[in-house]
Simulated scan of single mutants.
Amino acid sequence: MRAPPPFRTALPLTLLLAAALAGCARQESSPPPLTAARADAAVLKRLQAEQTQQDRNLQTFDELDFVHYSGQQWDHFHRSHAPNILVHYPDGSTTTGLEAHLERLKPQFVFAPDTRIKVHPVKVAQGNLTAVTGIMEGTFTQPMPLPDGTTLAPTNQPFKLDMATFGRWENGVMVEEWLYWDNQAFMKQIGAAK
């Protein structure tokens, strides 16, 4: 199933185009001052550049989840994450730096090697911020290492978990990321909690 196009607000661009068309429709004997036309062109150019960057950030995020995360291509995360990225996790903890973030992601694939994100139902970009929802799926087929050194036996139960990511971008990469999902719902789905 194809994901819907990202929702974004186009009001500023629409208003700018309407104003430009209204100006063209005027039946004045003298054209508007050249400086006003240059200012309108500069604003339009800036808005187009912002829209292009917002679209690029969302496209980069799609590639991150659908290809690099789902394919465990850890050496490609630098394409979407700054080296010193600050990441906030659902349990309130944080990591600083790409390597620390990757170390938090990799264990998911130890007990659920088929973990994947293949859809982003909602994608919004405004300025240097993105908000994306996704569906993380997989199956608990391998022993899960626990913090105390023991393991939890696999239940072979699948999981399908809603998640959301908010990102702050600079120069085409995220410098800060907020991750949200329901850990209790996840544990219930894989049969590790009631």
Rank of each mutant, 00 (worst) to 15 (best):
N171C: 03
T133V: 08
G127H: 06
V124P: 02
T155D: 09
N183F: 02
V132S: 00
V124G: 02
L146Q: 14
T130E: 00
W178Q: 06
T115P: 01
R116L: 07
Q142W: 02
P147F: 08
Y180T: 11
P121S: 13
L146A: 14
Y180L: 10
G134L: 09
P154N: 09
V173C: 08
M174D: 00
Q142A: 12
N128L: 14
G134Q: 08
Q157S: 10
A125W: 00
Q157H: 13
L161W: 10
D148S: 14
P143N: 07
A131E: 00
Q157I: 04
E176K: 03
V124D: 03
F140E: 01
L152W: 01
A164N: 11
V124F: 11
F159P: 03
I117D: 01
V175Y: 00
G167C: 12
E177Y: 00
P147V: 10
N156F: 11
E170P: 04
N171W: 05
L161D: 08
T165M: 05
D162P: 11
T155M: 12
Q142T: 07
E177D: 12
G172T: 09
Q126Y: 09
V122A: 01
L161C: 13
G172Y: 06
T151K: 07
T165D: 07
N128P: 13
N128A: 12
Y180H: 10
N171A: 13
M174G: 02
F166N: 01
T151E: 09
T141R: 06
P154D: 08
G172K: 08
N156Y: 11
G138H: 01
H120N: 12
F159Y: 13
V119T: 11
L179P: 00
Q142R: 12
P158K: 11
P158T: 11
K118A: 14
G167F: 00
R168A: 04
V175N: 06
L146T: 11
G127A: 14
E176W: 05
G127P: 10
M144L: 14
T150H: 12
K123R: 15
T165K: 01
A153H: 06
P154G: 07
T155G: 09
T165S: 10
F140V: 03
D162M: 12
F166C: 02
G134N: 10
N171Q: 13
L129S: 05
K160F: 03
Q142G: 02
Q126C: 15
M163A: 13
T150D: 09
A131G: 04
